[in-house]
Simulated scan of single mutants.
Amino acid sequence: MPVTIEDVRRVAAPLPRSYEVLVHDRVKFRVGSIVWLAFSRDEKDMGFAFPKEERLALVESEPDVFFLPRPSDLRFNWVEAWLDALDEERMRELVLDAWRMVVPKFVAASVLRDP
């Protein structure tokens, strides 16, 4: 079953240091001033923090799920995905990995139980 913005909120909202904002009619999640998760205005796609050096391989491996951000956002560690192409497990993995990129390691470890 495809995920919705509400499914993503249930994962992203309780994460330490994460908070939701509305910017130009778009829902975004931040840690401090860093946007690590954002939705299109129509809430059909989700952008999230992702390593630049791995982005192209991800998009090329699953172009029906992932796509590159607009050209002006290529300078950021960012990739996008169609929400209706994700299941709950995949979405949870992407959201947690994106959040982990922007919080201190000890904060991530407290939630994810990483060594």
Rank of each mutant, 00 (worst) to 15 (best):
K52M: 14
D87E: 03
P71L: 03
V95W: 04
P71E: 04
K105H: 11
D84H: 14
S40I: 01
E20A: 13
P69T: 03
V35P: 00
P63Q: 02
E6K: 05
R26T: 14
D42A: 09
E6C: 02
L56A: 13
R17W: 11
L74Y: 03
R113H: 15
P16L: 08
S72M: 14
R70D: 15
V31E: 09
D64W: 01
A108W: 09
L68A: 00
R55Y: 07
R30E: 10
P14G: 07
F76Y: 15
L86P: 01
T4H: 01
M46C: 13
P104L: 11
E62G: 00
W36N: 01
E43D: 09
F67G: 01
A13M: 12
W78Y: 10
L58N: 05
F48R: 07
F50V: 07
H24K: 12
A38K: 01
V111R: 07
L68Y: 00
F50H: 14
V103W: 11
L86A: 04
D64K: 11
E54D: 15
P71W: 00
R41Y: 01
P104R: 13
F76A: 12
I34C: 07
A38L: 08
V102R: 13
L83Q: 05
D42W: 03
L22P: 00
L58Q: 02
P14K: 06
S18Q: 08
W36Q: 06
R75M: 01
P115E: 12
P69L: 02
V23F: 10
K105T: 14
L74V: 06
K28P: 00
R70L: 13
R90H: 14
K105W: 11
K105D: 14
F66H: 05
L86V: 04
D42N: 13
E88Y: 09
M46E: 05
K28G: 00
E54H: 12
V111L: 11
A13F: 09
V79D: 04
L74M: 14
S18D: 07
D45N: 12
D64G: 10
P71S: 01
L22A: 10
S61I: 04
S72H: 13
V59Q: 03
P14D: 07
E80W: 08
R90M: 11
R55V: 13
V21D: 13
F39W: 10
V103F: 11
V102M: 08
R70Y: 10
P14M: 11
P69C: 02
D87Q: 00
R70K: 15
M91V: 03
D73W: 10
V102Q: 12
A13R: 10
M1V: 11
G32H: 09
K52R: 15
D42E: 14
L37I: 05
P2L: 07
G32K: 09
V8C: 04
A12Y: 07
A108D: 09
D84C: 04
A49P: 02
R92T: 15
P63G: 07
M101C: 06
E62C: 02
A109C: 12
L94V: 07
R113E: 15
A13W: 09
A57Y: 03
D42P: 01
D45L: 08
A13H: 06
E80A: 05
M46D: 04
Y19T: 09
M101S: 09
E53K: 05
E89N: 11
F39T: 01
D64V: 04
L86D: 01
P2H: 12
L74F: 05
